[in-house]
């Protein structure tokens, strides 16, 4: 474990907590894409298939349980909670999951470290996580008004992957033959997708104005 990875995991955890706080306290999911949340639940399910078979550390297992539990809770809140679901903007959140999942699945079948079920699912989860934010970014452009909590949620979500890249560089430099192109390439694409959001988020912070994404 290194400081980059620990900070990254804590940033990721913070993003989930910010979203759960928003949904649980003000009972609203305005501006949040259910599609993205469902994709994240799928990402964690496919990535943590080994949660019961391969024990790595208490930290690893506890964090996996937290991410699985929170991602499914958020989807449950947005789908079934009688108050929260009213603030879900299903007419704007129209991105089709299948357009993201299918190419990622095909790519995972073609490019993977080993052609086994768990390995392909693990690989699929990295490709899918890289693009899972797209429905959320599309929704932001459509809804225009981005409340602070939503902006912070997306910022933390992007920052966690950028920190993972620092972790991968650190491990590549310090650990012999530590090479994992699949997470590296996926993580890079994922972070780049946040690029313009980070730019407008920084501008809104610098000029102290409300966050607005160009149409």
């Amino acid at each position: 474990m290194n400081i980059f990875r620990l900070t990254a995991d804590m940033t990721h955890l913070m993003s989930v907590i910010v979203l759960l706080l928003k949904i649980h306290t003000i009972k609203s999911c305005a501006g949040i894409s259910l599609k993205t949340q469902e994709l994240y639940a799928i990402v964690f399910t496919c990535r943590y298939l080994d949660i019961f078979t391969d024990f790595i550390s208490f930290y690893n297992t506890i964090m996996k349980v937290i991410f699985l539990w929170t991602s499914f809770s958020i989807v449950w809140y947005m789908r079934y909670h009688k108050i929260v679901r009213r603030s879900y903007d299903k007419d704007q959140d129209t991105f089709r999951h299948v357009f993201l999942m299918l190419p990622c699945l095909v790519l995972a079948l073609l490019i993977n470290e080993r052609f086994t079920f768990k390995e392909v699912m693990w690989t699929f989860s990295f490709y899918l996580e890289a693009v899972a934010i797209l429905p959320q970014l599309v929704l932001l452009q459509r809804t225009r008004n981005i409340d602070n909590l939503t902006g912070q949620y997306i910022f933390l979500l992007g920052a966690y992957r950028a920190l993972y890249i620092l972790n991968w560089i650190y491990r590549y430099v310090t650990e012999p033959n530590y090479v994992h192109w699949i997470p590296w390439m996926s993580g890079l694409v994922q972070t780049l997708l946040y690029g313009d959001f980070f730019y407008y988020y920084f501008l809104s912070w610098k000029n102290n104005v409300k966050l607005q994404l160009p149409a």
Binding site: R5, D9, H12, D50, D54, I56, S57, N60, M63, K64, F67, E113, R114, E119, W122, Y164, N167, Y178, H180, P183
Partner: peptide
């Protein structure tokens, strides 16, 4: 096995 050791990240 070695590959699972390398899967020590979340």
């Amino acid at each position: 096995n070695p590959t699972y050791k390398s899967k020590d990240e979340l």
